[in-house]
Computed example of a mutant assay.
Amino acid sequence: MNADWYPLSDAPPFPAAGYAALADDLADILGTRNDVLLIQAEAVVALEAVAQSLAQSPTQSPGRPGIRALNIVTSLYGRWFGGWLRRAGAEVVDLMAALPGQPVTAAEVEQALSGGRFDLVAVVHAESAYGILNPLPEIAALVRAHGALLVVDAVASVGGHALAVDDLGVDVAVIGPQKSLGGQAGVSALSISDRAWGRVAPAGEAPSILSLADQRDQWLKTGRGMLPGTPSALEFHALAQTLRRVKAEGIAALQDRHHHAATAARAGARALTGRAWVAPDQASNLVTAAALPDGLTAAQVLAAAAPGHALSAGVGPGGEGLIRLNHTGARASLPVVLGDLAVLGRALAAAGYRADVGAALVAAERAANADRSA
């Protein structure tokens, strides 16, 4: 390490007036007029704070059960959210996708909602674990018709997929800058509707990062100046720079860039293995899951890949049957996708599967060009 380089200790203080501007920029990205809170921790903490704050009714008497929640589980992240809700006292019904590593369908959500009253529905929009996309517009319409609150984990999807919070009727959207926005993971944010504020548990005797009411009372109600506690200047400078880059590119252009990269990756992956993990309209723009041929596992392919590669297996049940191509943030570009496809093709060949790398690269380029022309 260069002993003359001190970016960590030499970062100037973040200006107190700058936090509100960050929140406003994030609101623009989310397409919302709802309140936006900045959380001084990575997005997992923001998600747990939402669960902790909404699991109990504000008027709940001691000894009574908490709210009833439908928790859509299509990866470990959904399982975690359900666990946080249960720990905080909610009654949770988990809705699992019919097959591991697949998105849930609107019909499955509709059937689950018909099973009784639900106060809250939670869903992950885009899943990095499997490269899948849950049908958020359809789910949002069903949840609105049911009268429940809708909580969306949009950490991966924001910037890579269209996400119009107010138009969809999303009550809480949790985001982080480290995925499609191309930033760092040290801070996160969430938008919260007036309806959701009405269901948030009241502030406690001592302030807690897991209490949205505390965040409201200590920051929103005090004029959105300096954040409570001791904010990390470095991470907020990084967030500000990330949002400047997003604004310069434009959120629509950023989403298009992810879509072009994903289109190329899906076409190339299918040309290599002869199969797709999910249909294009069920696939994430951030990660492409290359479905492996029968008889091959992700561990075998990764062991055969060249050193320094960026390929990875899926995370969770079924994940050993796929290889993930990461085209998120700065990696959302055709050259990166072509490089990863070449690495995957050579690894498949080394693992004993005949893969035509040249045909895959041609398929990826043609798909990207057609997508740009559409």
Rank of each mutant, 00 (worst) to 15 (best):
H146C: 03
V170K: 02
R79G: 13
L302V: 07
G274N: 12
P12M: 09
G295M: 07
L181A: 03
S180P: 00
S61E: 13
I72Y: 14
F118S: 04
R33N: 15
G18N: 06
L149H: 01
G204K: 09
F81E: 06
G318P: 08
V170C: 03
R346P: 00
G31A: 12
I39P: 01
W84S: 14
L181S: 01
L348H: 02
V278P: 11
V104D: 12
V200K: 04
W197G: 13
R354A: 15
R216E: 06
L85Q: 00
P280Y: 02
D28N: 03
P65H: 01
A185W: 08
L272P: 08
G329Q: 05
T288H: 02
V336A: 13
R195L: 00
A51P: 11
R257T: 11
V336W: 13
P12T: 10
A351T: 04
H259A: 15
G318W: 12
A248S: 11
A46K: 06
G229I: 06
V152C: 08
V50Q: 07
A347Y: 13
S75L: 05
P62A: 04
T105V: 10
P13I: 08
G274P: 14
L54P: 05
R224G: 06
W5P: 03
Q60I: 10
S284G: 09
L113W: 08
S333R: 14
P58V: 11
Q111K: 09
A330P: 01
G352C: 15
V362C: 02
T328I: 12
R117V: 07
L190Q: 03
G250C: 12
R79H: 14
A310N: 10
R224E: 10
A97K: 03
P103S: 13
T230Q: 12
T59D: 15
A351W: 10
G115Q: 15
A370M: 09
T242P: 07
Y19S: 02
I175S: 07
